[in-house]
């Protein structure tokens, strides 16, 4: 399709509006992040006095300094890394084998299992907090990172499974059959041939589950009461006190919380891009 026509003027208008729209979207999407950064470097004393300005007249690192040295934030961070990292890895491993079996095998009760997994996604989390608390409390899993990891894993496995299944569906069956004829057992074929080809899918699933667990607030708030087991979203709330909200420090903590997620996506983005465009072009 040649929308732009042949004249250079029309081409200019076409591409100009094209980039204008993309630009508008990017600004819209990134503006809250920019505001986060702006407030985090604004000194407390001019936060309310300067009015709405795109950049403060003075900037300071003291909010960061405070968050890193005077607050419990480094500890919350560590907790979040442990919880989100473990959840992402465990969920992805479970989802990989489950997704593979959904993709490749026909077995009795498969449709029932799929339906059950779908049903678990239909309930609002709020409804489930009380029963989950009741189940976890006698097991000593409330107020513990392990408890959070178990709950997050349970909630993310269904979606992650369907995600992984769709990636396996995109890999021809012939490949593992060839590997099995070449001398692999089915599991070896899965591990040596299929899994390496699903790396983009694995990366996408890891990323999805990691961010979900990283930013989860509701369960973290309800199941954990002590400081020592709090994750960072709960920690962020500690900047809200009865009489005031310490925006500067809160924003600084927010910026710091972005770092692991960004680093993680930077790490997997090579696979992620492959994964998101997989199947677009026949290989």
């Amino acid at each position: 399709m040649n929308v732009s026509g042949n004249s250079p003027a029309r081409k200019l208008v076409y591409w100009g509006s094209h980039y204008l729209m993309i630009g508008a979207f990017v600004v819209f999407a990134l503006f809250p992040l920019y505001w986060l950064l702006k407030v985090s470097v604004t000194p407390n004393d001019i936060l309310y006095t300067e009015g709405v300005r795109m950049w403060p007249s003075r900037t300071t690192w003291e909010n960061y300094f405070f968050v890193l040295t005077q607050s419990n934030f480094p500890h919350y961070f560590l907790n979040s890394v442990i919880v989100a990292g473990t959840t992402a890895i465990v969920t992805t491993m479970v989802a990989a084998v489950t997704g593979y079996s959904f993709s490749r095998f026909a077995f009795r009760g498969k449709m029932i299992i799929v339906a059950l997994m779908l049903i678990t996604q239909m309930f609002p989390l709020v409804m489930l907090i009380a029963p989950i608390f009741k189940i976890l409390a006698p097991l000593g899993l409330t107020d513990s990172l392990t408890g959070l990891i178990i709950v997050y894993t349970a909630f993310n496995v269904p979606f992650a499974t369907f995600l992984m299944q769709s990636f396996f569906d995109g890999i021809p069956k012939d490949l593992e059959e060839a590997a099995m004829i070449d001398g692999n057992t089915r599991f070896q074929a899965f591990r040596r041939i299929i899994l390496p080809l699903t790396l983009p899918g694995v990366a996408a699933t890891l990323g999805f589950v990691f961010t979900a667990a990283w930013s989860e607030l509701l369960f973290a708030l309800m199941l954990v009461s002590s400081e020592s087991a709090s994750t960072f979203p709960v920690g962020l709330l500690s900047f809200v006190s009865k009489f005031s909200v310490d925006f500067g420090q809160m924003m600084a903590a927010g910026v710091l919380a972005l770092i692991p997620a960004c680093a993680f996506f930077l790490l997997i983005q090579r696979y992620l891009v492959q994964g998101l465009t997989a199947g677009a072009v026949k290989g």
Partner: peptide
């Protein structure tokens, strides 16, 4: 199991391992 039958198969889709070179495919 297929691996113990000592047969080789050529598939319609060729089923070459995409992440391996030609030599690796043949030597697998």
């Amino acid at each position: 199991q297929p691996k113990d039958r000592d047969i080789a198969m050529v598939f319609q889709s060729y089923a070459l391992y995409p992440h391996m070179s030609v030599a690796e495919n043949m030597s697998y």
